[in-house]
Nucleic acid binder design. Sequence first.
DNA 1: AATGAATGAGAATTCATTCAT
DNA 2: TATGAATGAATTCTCATTCAT
Lengths: 223, 223, 223, 223
Amino acid sequence: MSFCSLINFMSNCSFKVIVMSNKKFSRNKEEKIELIYETFFNLVLKKGYHKISTNHIAKTAKISIGTIYKYFPKGKEDIMRKYFETSMEEILNINDLIVINDDNIRSFLNRFIMDLYKNHEKKVGYNLALRSAIQADKQLLEAHKNKIELTFKEIAQHLRKKNNNFRQIPEEKLIEIFIFLYNLINAIIYHHLAIMKLFESSDRLVVYLSNLVAFSLDYLSKS
Amino acid sequence: MSFCSLINFMSNCSFKVIVMSNKKFSRNKEEKIELIYETFFNLVLKKGYHKISTNHIAKTAKISIGTIYKYFPKGKEDIMRKYFETSMEEILNINDLIVINDDNIRSFLNRFIMDLYKNHEKKVGYNLALRSAIQADKQLLEAHKNKIELTFKEIAQHLRKKNNNFRQIPEEKLIEIFIFLYNLINAIIYHHLAIMKLFESSDRLVVYLSNLVAFSLDYLSKS
Amino acid sequence: MSFCSLINFMSNCSFKVIVMSNKKFSRNKEEKIELIYETFFNLVLKKGYHKISTNHIAKTAKISIGTIYKYFPKGKEDIMRKYFETSMEEILNINDLIVINDDNIRSFLNRFIMDLYKNHEKKVGYNLALRSAIQADKQLLEAHKNKIELTFKEIAQHLRKKNNNFRQIPEEKLIEIFIFLYNLINAIIYHHLAIMKLFESSDRLVVYLSNLVAFSLDYLSKS
Amino acid sequence: MSFCSLINFMSNCSFKVIVMSNKKFSRNKEEKIELIYETFFNLVLKKGYHKISTNHIAKTAKISIGTIYKYFPKGKEDIMRKYFETSMEEILNINDLIVINDDNIRSFLNRFIMDLYKNHEKKVGYNLALRSAIQADKQLLEAHKNKIELTFKEIAQHLRKKNNNFRQIPEEKLIEIFIFLYNLINAIIYHHLAIMKLFESSDRLVVYLSNLVAFSLDYLSKS
DNA sequence: AATGAATGAGAATTCATTCAT
DNA sequence: TATGAATGAATTCTCATTCAT
């Protein structure tokens, strides 16, 4: 798995702007699904996950409520789960695995953080929704944990194959570090974006996170 | 404001164990209110904030729905706000202000973190509820921010009055540091308790947080 | 169990005319439940079980939809089941057991048929609904079968205790005969009322049924 | 009208076993229509008329919902009506009229009952559906009544032409008897198959029905 | 003061039917 | 001709809130 796929995982891909046709019965399965995702996450951003109803999504997206239930038979819950699974599948797509040539772990991690932040920012809606959904749906919480563990296992294995620097760290340790850093960064970015800013500018947050990662790697290597 | 009140603030007060008498109804207003808080936050822990209805609280607490609306006319929203305000008022209670004699900022902060964690753990229900409520209620989010700012302003002023070490840091800077650390620690503890553990044991988490605070103080003093 | 209770079973009691008060929040649990039953079965008679919605019942009965779901959390299905169970409980109420002094089995059965017909006619709505509900709800079908078996077991035991003529028939045989006659009469009455009349006048139907029962008793005693 | 056509009428024609080719779609209109009938009545048997949706039929039959609406523009209602009409047309098909040489009314009726039962059993799905549909569709009920009256009128006229024994009964009386017996037998068979068995074995039911018909003929001739 | 029945707006969901492909 | 995505009215059901007792 490549650096690119890693970044994709972290970012779950940004939303494309979708222009639907004006016909009454316009048909494009993929576009409809994308439109539902986009509409839903935008609404979550504005009003909060639990304030959004399926009817509300339908009205905003200018599609019928039946269309939502065609693709997502359990409504909101399914929207979350399927978006989640889709992003998972993308990550595990072997065709995406590309050689990483970045020998410097530090610079690799800096890019990792930067992209993680940018994509988090781009998809605050999804991330807010994910947190809310996780609290109302234990299964999604478990799926989320499993996803993270599996994904970083694959990433770790891939990196150790391709890169000497990573190979010097035992696989288990590397996975543990990745998961720790992923959680740490997510916790902070989420709080910064959804609860209360830690720094006035996001640039300063990213610089802080970069130093924090360095500190934590140091800390973990000693403990 | 005392060290105790600081800890109280950070922890939003632990729940008292409420032993219901065998009589059908508890005798006074305070007991009823405590019972509602306790029942609600316990239910949030089990099922998630948005899965809990006021009728559900009433049934579980074995009181009538009318009683809940008597004390909390806007239901769940009011339960959150009033619990929130109560903890605020306690903090600002001047009688609680006790002299801090701890000259060592480092050891002060360690205790601060330790207690913050312990109380977070003790009241996961309330903290989960607070996050959920904040996302569905912009006013509560604003109130939350203001509360933190005001409280730390008071604490900073108090500490600078009583203690030479704190007096060497400009008030604004001291407030900023407190708020930053508060947010940082809360973000991590919340993620650890509600989303995914960062360390297997909470002891290791607390040690890490202690080092993280030291690192961050260092980082902030340089930037 | 008395002859009266037997008749009650067969007839499931006729509906009382219910006059609700004009207050917005009028309170009378029992009356509300009766009103729901009455309204529902009247509507079934007019439009058919599957054409009636819970909202339709609420509107017609001038109560709120919430009230229906308070007493019947699964809607129509629950209305059927609970009405069914209620009638069951009434039958099994030991206080209702009264001595039968009717020594003549033939005249006993004639009254049995007559009352069965009259009450069937009075509650066509319920009986139509029951048939429809049974086809959409296997559990209700089973419950219906069990109810009939249990009820006639009790009735048979009671009659054999109190009456010499019945005692000469073995218990199992007596139960079998009762169930057979009950099913036979119900099948014919239902068809007559709901599908297509067998006789122009109901009097002639009842006379025919009386003769049919005599014939069938004769037939069964020989086979 | 022949004896055969009489039996056909009573039994509404048994379903032909439809062997689908491995090709994705069956080749012609007739096959599609047969497939829809078969699928629908099988589903009714399993789940009940009102639990089956047109979409459900389409999915089970592996045809598109559009195909169903092509042949049955009003959906389920049309499936019932057209199946009903088809069986009617078959009965009235003059080519089917064959001479009855059975001089013995009693043995004629025994065969009548036997075949009626067998075909009822073979097509429980359709008969269940018919009862349900009739209750939700007054027009179908009327059509059903008219069909029975017309059919037996034709049958009576035919029998009286061909057979001395029948000629001795006035036409009106003969029609009345036929309709009465048809309703009686149907009521009992339906109850036996759909609600609760009257006898453990169907053989015993048929024997009982045979005796019942004899009794009823006797009863009707006297009244 | 306390109770809990009653309300009804609104959210979730189904399904007969239409129509672009 | 066949398909099945799309529609949206109708239905089921929930829950915050009111108010008679």
